[in-house]
Design a protein around this nucleic acid. Structure first.
Lengths: 222, 222
DNA sequence: TATTATAAATAGTATTACTATTATTTTTGA
DNA sequence: TCAAAAATAATAGTAATACTATTTATAATA
């Protein structure tokens, strides 16, 4: 998988100019990931990003309308990447149980290798998603963003995993709630483990988070 | 409960001057809740709040260091109020099962009556918590905020409910993860139900959210 | 009643989140 | 290959934000 030349399709509504279509665009994205991680989204500005990449901020504005849509782009790319992993790694599994178990793994285990085949560092990007992604949903213009299809890939990931839940237990009433709880929960628990450990039960060495959500899924749909 | 004159103790580190100690302070809080709900936290400013209450912004700065700490104050007050409800409503229940079930209710059912005994509208405040509370955890200065004890009440609520889980099943490995997943999940699902319904399974009329998390808790610790 | 605390009024600053304009360089396609 | 078009750089400018500071007026209290 790691040698494959893949391309993640992000909804073109999100950008003004495809950042993947030029060297500068790719620099905006890769340095953007790094700088948002470093400063946090609030302190991150296009001016600072411009300094980092040696371009004026006005140039960055020709790619993204504002820093919020850059964030939406990055997070959307992340979910595209997860969707790809989800489809790829469950494709050849016949048993619905094993299939779902594999899906839960993809959705809850941390990415440990920065993928070598794009300008995007997936480990850093996942860190960014964990710390910042809530900020794209929790705004006054969620509804507008949603109607433009900004969250399309994410919703598709939830839908795919929900279907795996249903194929195991067609009578289960809350597949989408379950999956979105698991996805968001896993990220949140990683954040808590780092900053508010008393809200978790993370022990060093073991990946309790993936284990917990695995148990949770299989016990509730049993 | 609704006639009782209660006082929620918020950590004094959060404010510069106790907003509960003056008419102006209480106006800052009650109008703050209203205005943050109306504008969203990003667009909310002390200047606008000042205009609303007829005071200059500089005056508000004598109560709170900045708008972030006002938000921390409001959310802390909310968890104080939830803790009070949690303790009060489970105090006389002997059965560990019923006790936990009641706790889950308190943590997942929406507040429907604005409490009549303070200047704080609990329904509006819960709305604010659902939409904005992630923003107090997801900052570069979480750790500093945490070390000042800003999240103390919230952590105590999680701790209390976790103990109820353990009293039902002392061998359960992940009580804190379970409770924080339930608390955060319930709020998140209410947000999704409103803005991204395809991530939930909320049907009109029924409170699927409380029902889902109740099932989840009891099945996983069984 | 004098002192002190609190609030109002006002002004000022650096930074942010943009928009606009012009000049320069790069790409492209005829 | 050269002219036209597109992209980028350089620069400037603006309204709003997130404050800080100062001075004056008002209210509480000892």
């Amino acid at each position: 998988m790691d040698r494959l030349q893949i391309h993640i399709n992000v909804n073109p509504e999100i950008y003004l100019r495809d950042p993947n279509s030029s060297e500068l665009g790719r620099k905006i994205v890769s340095s953007g990931i790094q700088l948002i991680n470093e400063l946090g989204f609030e302190k991150f500005t296009f001016k600072k990003l411009g300094e980092q990449i040696g371009s004026p901020e006005s140039t960055i504005y020709r790619y993204f309308e504002n820093k919020q849509t850059l964030l939406v782009y990055l997070i959307s790319w992340y979910w595209g990447w997860i969707e790809y992993k989800l489809v790829f790694s469950t494709a050849n599994i016949d048993s619905p149980t094993l299939k779902l178990a594999e899906a839960i793994k993809v959705l809850t285990q941390p990415i440990t290798i920065g993928n070598s085949f794009t300008h995007i560092n997936a480990v850093l990007l996942e860190q960014l998603v964990i710390e910042e992604s809530v900020k794209i949903y929790h705004t006054k213009d969620v509804d507008q963003a949603n109607s433009k299809g900004y969250f399309g890939i994410y919703k598709r990931v939830v839908q795919r995993a929900s279907e795996m839940v249903l194929s195991l237990n067609p009578n289960f009433e809350f597949p989408h709630m379950l999956i979105s709880t698991v996805i968001e929960g896993a990220h949140q628990q990683r954040h808590f483990a780092k900053h508010l450990p008393s809200l978790t039960d993370v022990k060093q060495g073991k990946d309790n988070i993936a284990e917990f959500y695995n148990q949770l899924v299989f016990k509730i749909i049993a």
